[in-house]
Write a protein that binds this DNA or RNA. Structure first.
Lengths: 205, 205, 205, 205
DNA sequence: CATGAATGAGAGTTCATTCAT
DNA sequence: AATGAATGAACTCTCATTCAT
């Protein structure tokens, strides 16, 4: 009981800090956010912060990122065993769309992330983990399609996977930073098409 | 005479500052570089910096970027009037290769740029100018190829151009930040191929 | 029973704290030792420390000093009733040697003490108690020798005692702080000789 | 002219800081003195301190010590070429008296020094420099007297010199810390006597 | 008696920037 | 034009200490 009371108080404080941090980060951006400000927003003593997040600013930010991360991971985990080009197109298009859509859903947090990635190695790593997860997935998918003789064998899957992912990622950042003017579904369609069939006409196009 | 002497001294000082800044930026990275340190390296009084670069750190950095920028612009300026798919492939492949190669050539400065882009709106703009220049170019190229019936008309050039450019850009950053392990020419080949003809087999592949 | 159990737990905790404190003090020195660190080392809650040592750092240190103190006191307690100069020399020489040797024996704790004496009035007092005990003893000894007409009556015992003790003390600190390069027994011999017979020759030397 | 104006302002600020520091040190003691407080006392911006004393508290204290040091050094520099025991006594007695008297003269600053010596290696060194200077001097003096057959050859000058100096030093600290109750001139007389001729009677005493 | 979460004072630093010379 | 002394805002981080459980 005793322990539970304390633990609960502690968790509540941590929660308050996370909530405050989220607010401050979104309002001020990654760089202008200070621990001082978070504490003030949380109405909490200066030292308390370091009890919960001894590593400082980046640590609390990664906590905030966990939700977002989860969803990215679940997208990367989707199975892929196409039996035809049409089927492959649908699945890939869906994946791409889903991926890019997360930009809209988590715009605010991703904006912070974007700002912090250039600075914090912790954040950099976290994001690279996501990207690598996707690359692994896509490489596997390409190999599968190559085995099924759906995809060209002369293409290096390591490169091809990155073409899809890196394009997607960049579109995602464009959306996050409010630079994008193109409809998301058009991006997804075109990206999937070019990735799969190319921009130039074949003999039958 | 007197005025000329002053002018010359002024130019010399500016030159010293630029040289010092380059050294400090490369040694310390964008974020750890301070005006204090630049002044120290340049052996110049604290106040002098602000005479030449009243906007501070970012301003001097953009000066340093000018050379690099020039070369990117000159790559983007290359003409493109293909009369066949083979010809188009060669030209595009060459462009892509050239673009990515700049990563190696200007690695150090680009590293600073990369770090700063997330923070400095000045740098962000500069980089976006480059990207937009490329996008304009590529969009034009696509339209030309579509007019020539070399490229598929149902593809949105605004999207397609970005697929090529954004992939290329991301590969560029991978190289700059020493993350890339793939041979540059293989990247160029595969990227050009997928962009033009797609990953999946057509009826004749 | 219940009360006894509590008492025992309390004693055990105190013991743990003392052990931890000793370790931390010796490892970190007086100034860098923090209550936080002691608690961590003792695996004990933050508040517990203050139950046992409400005065803080210095209080626990004086506890740690008790053993050392005891031995100093026992040296100071040795009887002195010489009947000849030769006899006096042997006894004094032995005392001096013993005193200085404690430097080696309790080097680590004395080092802490030395660091703390300038700051903590508690420690200062403790050390002065030791010194005063010695001075009292030596003054008595001198008076005895003066009564026996072994020592010169024109010498002020209060000063003379301090010459012996203060020299010895300083040699002790030299040893504790690893500054001393002279053999201990040579120090004892010379100190005793000069103290008793002086550096300059008499008519018969 | 221009430079002179600036230099003068700078020197004035430094002077203000030193004056303020002296006041704060004496009022608060070594440990309770903070840079913040010195700045406040000097009515000077926070950053200014670090322009003049980048190493912090200890650096400014050593500046304050320089006057005191000078005088100690000049005492240690006095020549010593006695031709008789009487002459030697007078000179040594004078030295000892002078040395101990400095305790009274610079009581306040020495008090700070005393507190800081246990902590700051900078101060420790400074003080040891003084002591070593004295030891070197006294060792030379003893050797000279041994050569003149005034002093006993079996005594190790390294030890004997320390007996005199360490006793003197400890008396000095006693005075500085207001522990001493004995008249200074009596201390000097007795210390010189015991050091030279010993406490115990010779055949002719 | 023991705990450990919370506190908040406050020390030290660093820097961009100003401005009199 | 160049200087560099002075500024002071701000931030991080640590610790001893309290007190509800």
């Amino acid at each position: 009981m005793k322990i539970d009371g304390r633990l609960q108080r502690s968790l509540k404080t941590k929660e308050k800090l996370l909530k405050a941090a989220e607010k401050v980060f979104i309002e001020q951006g990654y760089h202008n956010t200070t621990i001082k400000e978070i504490n003030k927003e949380a109405n909490i003593g200066h030292g308390t912060f370091y009890i919960h997040f001894p590593e400082g600013k980046d640590e609390i930010l990664t906590y905030l990122m966990n939700n977002v991360m989860e969803e990215f991971y679940s997208v990367a985990d989707i199975e892929f065993t196409p039996n035809s080009k049409e089927n492959a197109f649908d699945v890939i298009r869906e994946q791409v769309f889903h991926f890019i859509s997360l930009a809209e859903k988590y715009k605010k947090m991703l904006m912070i992330f974007y700002e912090g990635i250039g600075v914090s190695s912790l954040l950099k790593e976290k994001w690279e983990d996501i990207l690598n997860k996707f690359i692994d997935r896509i490489v596997k998918d390409i190999r599968y399609s190559q085995d099924q003789s759906l995809a060209k064998k002369q293409i290096n899957p390591e490169v091809a996977s990155r073409i899809l992912l890196y394009s997607g990622e960049r579109f995602l950042w464009e959306i996050v930073t409010n630079k994008n003017k193109l409809p998301i579904s058009e991006i997804a369609d075109n990206l999937t098409h070019v990735y799969m069939f190319g921009l130039y006409k074949g003999p039958n196009d």
